[in-house]
């Protein structure tokens, strides 16, 4: 790390500013090359080569698409991420609307309650859900004691548990993105509609919801990508019975020691994320193009 001390800005000669500019960038670039670019390149390379002969091959990709287990994992990942994205957006919307519009002193309390869990870390929150949802957890205990059910409900180690846990982890991000979007809507539009006799419901349906579509889309996309790449929550709440791509990659590396297949799965996950981000960017550019066009008409 001695290079950092040598290139610190305070010690810089004043004259060749541009060269020194590149020089101070060197440590960041070095770290990112050695521990990000080269590993990513290696992973992509490994996915296309044979483990013994190092000859180029598509065999690992063929295996991914022909063995049902991997495709089932991809399918579970997709279903889980869509459900999480919808739950986060639907549950987050009322809170975001309140945060965007309220001027009461309770707003700060709601804000803190909605966002503070983010500081608690994923493990703590997932552990909380484990205690609640487990076979001998709170819900099953209570229902068994009350005699409502005879045997524990299957609340953990399945899709339901993972969706609950991930929705909890991702909800603050959804709320933030929706709040920003709703704050951007002119409140006078809602007041005008109400004054003209529109009910709250039709204000919501015809004004607030349509105008917050960009926020809804970004909340869906953020939640989807965060859910698809999550590791700890699916590992703890889904376990061996509900495997997603992230937990399957871990298994391939540490239990099956099949590096090339792990590389293929990692690339599949990466491509899925990049596709969703690309769709988001395309939606955003189309929308801003449309807006500039229509502004041209009106002004």
């Amino acid at each position: 790390m001695s290079t950092i001390a040598l290139t610190a800005p305070a010690a810089m000669p004043p004259a060749p500013a541009k060269t020194s500019g590149y020089l101070v960038l060197a440590p960041s670039c070095l770290v990112l090359t050695v521990f990000f670019a080269l590993p990513m390149g290696t992973t992509i390379g490994m996915s296309f080569t044979d483990g013994e002969t190092l000859a180029p091959t598509l065999a690992h990709y063929q295996r991914f698409f022909s063995d049902g287990l991997s495709l089932a994992g991809l399918y579970r990942t997709t279903v889980m991420s869509i459900l999480v994205a919808v739950c986060v957006t639907v549950f987050g919307y009322p809170v975001a609307y309140y945060l965007a519009r309220s001027r009461s002193r309770w707003r700060a309390v709601v804000f803190a309650l909605a966002l503070a869990p983010e500081l608690a870390g994923v493990v703590l929150r997932t552990y909380g859900w484990l205690i609640i949802l487990e076979d001998r957890g709170f819900i099953n205990d209570a229902l068994l004691n009350l005699g409502i059910i005879a045997s524990p409900l299957p609340l953990s180690k399945n899709l339901f548990a993972v969706v609950v846990g991930l929705t909890h982890v991702i909800l603050p991000f959804g709320i933030l993105s929706l709040t920003t979007s709703i704050q951007g809507i002119d409140p006078n539009l809602e007041r005008a509609a109400q004054m003209l006799g529109a009910s709250r419901l039709s204000v919501l349906r015809h004004i607030v919801l349509p105008l917050s579509v960009p926020g809804i889309v970004s909340s869906l996309l953020i939640s989807f990508t965060m859910a698809a790449s999550a590791y700890a929550t699916p590992a703890l709440l889904g376990g061996a019975r509900f495997k997603v791509l992230a937990t399957m990659i871990y298994e391939q590396v540490l239990f099956y020691i099949d590096w090339r297949f792990a590389a293929v799965m990692a690339i599949a996950l990466l491509l899925m994320m990049l596709t969703v981000s690309f769709l988001g960017i395309r939606y955003e550019t189309r929308r801003s193009n449309r807006r500039t066009n229509s502004e041209g008409v009106f002004s």
Binding site: P39, M40, T42, T43, A263, L270
Partner: peptide, 24 residues
């Protein structure tokens, strides 16, 4: 853009890439 590029790769993918690279 290059310095921010790691943000677009999921952590689990970065993790597996680093461990594969170090092993190779």
């Amino acid at each position: 853009a290059g310095l921010l590029s790691p943000l677009s790769v999921p952590q689990i993918v970065k993790g597996v890439a680093i461990v594969l690279f170090l092993s190779i």
